[in-house]
Design a protein around this nucleic acid. Structure first.
Lengths: 312, 312
DNA sequence: TCAAAAGTGTTGGGAGTACACCCATGA
DNA sequence: TCATGGGTGTACTCCCAACACTTTTGA
């Protein structure tokens, strides 16, 4: 008893396809690939977190194809034949949003057989952390519209992406207690106030400024610098950078054919000194409703205990 | 330009196949499944941790097929069409080792295109925690030989399973600092000494007994019981159980057609009272080399700080 | 001169460490 | 009776939370 199952209508193999199909699979020849047992399609989706100084932001892409046409979705796309899923996530990030050198970490597999109405698509979700200097996102080949949304005020989402985001935020909080990753939401040079706000937003609490400052400095995860901040309308803060001993690899290594732009970007970022200079054009169309969630002040105790483990 | 790629020699679609091929895919019809783009095969592999009172153990299966015939491997198998990857892991665990009701958690995707010489196989790795009362593992349909190995003295492993295990042990340590899961390596009723040893082995350190006891009790994660331990050759300890408020769901819900045996097993486990009664037949053929890794005593401070977050 | 954020030190209390002796059991 | 692990209390230390005023800048 033999049967043939052929999936014909998969022209939108990329989630957000506005280009001819052939463009989407430069490395693989469209044709027919046959297996004795059913195989799922596998995609990588990125939950891209940003921080604008006040609240957590998410980068989403508007879908230009059915299903879920017009809905917003996580950037992502299908696994190629010769790459790991981590490389796939980094590549899709680059292709759809022009982001590179971002912190990227595997997070969870979503594999409900019915999560994509077209055929079975398994999604490997990644958490990505983006610096304010990266906020000038240029929509890539595959992307229709790109937008930053307040993580607490998301639009209608495609597929099961709402659920994925909820779990990603939980996981982000976890990671913050395991690794010094908060820096990846800040520019190279940042003030302690900015760092504190990242911790406050993710952990949904507040900290005493003096105690937080002391905790951070005694933990030895920051180094003071002489970099001068841009003119602000109040007393300019001293700028710090992440201590060298805790800097983590920030990107899955891929041989980009044209990685020069990445280098240029790095130089540029060094010149953008904190205070979220580049966030001005961040989509802040969200109503500025004061979300007084009455967060209680928390002890800073234990905030950096993980360092003992992390530093071996 | 159309091409056909057909993978013919995949009779060992299960990693450990000693049964006719048809047996392995009861739910899917062998035939030919065709897609316009290449899809990887997807498998779930389980890193099954046990604890025998002294050291961390791993459950492995001896391969009965090429490639890697005779090597030991992680239990696992291919994803079926109508199940999530989590259900797949639970099913494979049951089919290959007869284990059910074990703590099971997704951990990481391993997707090197060359990790399986036959065709591209992506592995979703799961961490499983097994109670001593589960140590009487009955090899299931698919398994050739099943064996417990000291986590520090593993045999030659198939595929990239060595690497997977290394990362799993790191992740296990992490999880221990995020959730109260140590209980899943102990029977329902356990002494505080046993609990302490689990923490010591996973964190590779030692704790002051009095301080550890106090930390655990003040954290409110255990409840004293009146259950009497089996006769030991020294003063019998008081037995505790995990406090109800921290008991986590321990199994991916699946509609087992014959789940009655699972219930019987639960009842049985209630009668086996701690002190690792059932570990006598655990494969302890490992040379009892005293691994005096000279672990230093650690403070218990912060061991249970995660509870604040965990309990919302 | 006012508003808004940055910078800075001390003290009291409580949590956590260090530590030693007795108990219960089986051999 | 001996060896082995279980059970228990306290004092002292140090870390952490709590807390307020001054400084710098732009408007």
């Amino acid at each position: 008893m033999r049967q043939n199952y052929v999936f014909g209508d998969m022209s939108d193999q990329q989630h957000n396809n506005r280009q001819p199909e052939i463009e989407k699979h430069r490395d693989s020849i469209p044709g027919s690939y046959t297996y004795p047992y059913p195989h799922p399609a596998v995609a990588a989706d990125c939950i891209i977190f940003g921080f604008d100084g006040n609240s957590l932001k998410l980068l989403l892409i508007e879908r230009g194809n059915e299903p879920f046409l017009g809905y917003w979705a996580l950037p992502g796309g299908f696994l190629h034949q010769d790459e790991t899923i981590d490389e796939c996530a980094a590549r899709e990030l680059r292709e759809e949003t022009n982001l590179r050198n971002v912190y990227l970490e595997q997070f969870k597999v979503f594999s409900n057989p019915k999560r994509d109405p077209r055929e079975r698509v398994m999604s490997v979700a990644f958490i990505a952390l983006v610096r304010p200097s990266d906020f000038n996102v240029i929509p890539g080949d595959d992307a229709a519209e790109v937008g930053w949304f307040d993580a607490d005020a998301l639009p209608a989402l495609a597929f099961d992406h709402k659920q994925i985001i909820v779990e990603a935020r939980e996981r982000l909080k976890e990671i913050l207690h395991l690794k010094p990753i908060a820096f990846n939401l800040l520019n190279r040079y940042f003030s302690l106030g900015e760092l504190q706000r990242v911790y406050e937003v993710i952990n949904n609490t507040t900290y005493d400024r003096r105690n937080f400052t002391r905790s951070v400095q005694e933990a030895g995860i920051v180094e003071a610098t002489d970099v001068k901040p841009r003119k602000a309308r109040n007393r300019p803060p001293r700028l710090y950078r992440a201590s060298q001993r805790i800097v983590m690899e920030e990107e899955v290594e891929i041989n980009y054919s044209n990685s020069s732009s990445s280098l240029i970007k790095d130089r540029l970022e060094d010149m953008i000194v904190s205070l979220f200079d580049s966030t001005d054009d961040l989509d802040s169309s969200m109503p500025e409703e004061e979300k007084k969630t009455t967060r209680k002040e928390s002890p800073t105790k234990g905030l950096f205990d993980f360092l003992n483990r992390f530093l071996k």
